[in-house]
Amino acid sequence: MQTREARQEPRTIEAKHEKYPRLIASCQELEPMPCAVVHPCDESSLRGAVDAARQGLLIPILVGPEQKIRAVAAACELDISGYSIVDASHSHESAETAVAAPFAHWKKARPGKALV
């Protein structure tokens, strides 16, 4: 007797993630929101923030050790010159800083805009 899992057709990766392009397209119709990206000190984290910004999904506020973030950006050839960086010495401080003053980060990322 086959188990339930064995009877089901295998799903391809494309089918499993087919909703994401629709979700991204829907979000691209909205105004991008500032988003704290905490401790983006590796390629995956930083590239994800940059790619999301390029797609118009968010305005990254990079929170973490500034020199380390800039070093990762340089090593990965990522242009982060247009993004705010809030310097924090380590990952725990980065997280605390990101949630401590969201309105200050908002104003820095979007001068003249008010959060309602």
Rank of each mutant, 00 (worst) to 15 (best):
M1G: 10
M1T: 11
Q2D: 03
Q2P: 03
T3I: 03
R4W: 06
E5Y: 12
E5P: 00
E5G: 06
P10T: 10
R11I: 15
T12V: 04
T12G: 05
I13E: 06
A15P: 00
A15G: 11
K16N: 09
K16D: 12
H17P: 00
H17E: 13
E18R: 15
E18W: 12
K19F: 13
Y20W: 13
I24A: 02
A25D: 10
E29Y: 00
E31F: 02
E31A: 11
P32K: 07
M33A: 10
C35H: 08
A36H: 04
A36W: 05
A36T: 11
V37I: 15
H39M: 06
C41H: 06
D42G: 11
S44M: 08
L46H: 01
R47Y: 12
R47M: 07
R47D: 10
G48K: 00
A49S: 07
A49H: 01
A49V: 03
V50Q: 09
V50P: 08
A52C: 14
R54D: 14
Q55A: 14
G56Q: 08
L57G: 11
L57R: 07
L57C: 13
L58S: 07
P60Q: 06
I61R: 00
V63C: 05
G64K: 06
Q67Y: 01
Q67W: 01
I69F: 02
A71Y: 01
V72I: 10
A74V: 02
A74Q: 07
C76V: 03
E77T: 07
L78E: 05
L78G: 04
D79I: 08
I80N: 11
I80E: 09
S81Q: 02
S81D: 07
G82V: 02
G82D: 08
Y83V: 01
Y83Q: 00
S84A: 02
V86W: 04
A88Y: 04
S89E: 11
S89G: 05
S89A: 14
S91E: 13
H92M: 08
H92Y: 07
A95Q: 06
A95E: 09
A95R: 07
A95P: 04
A98K: 03
A98D: 06
A98G: 08
A98Y: 02
A98W: 02
A100Y: 02
P102A: 06
F103R: 11
K107M: 13
K107A: 15
K108R: 12
K108I: 12
A109H: 06
R110E: 13
G112M: 06
K113T: 14
A114T: 15
A114S: 15
A114D: 14
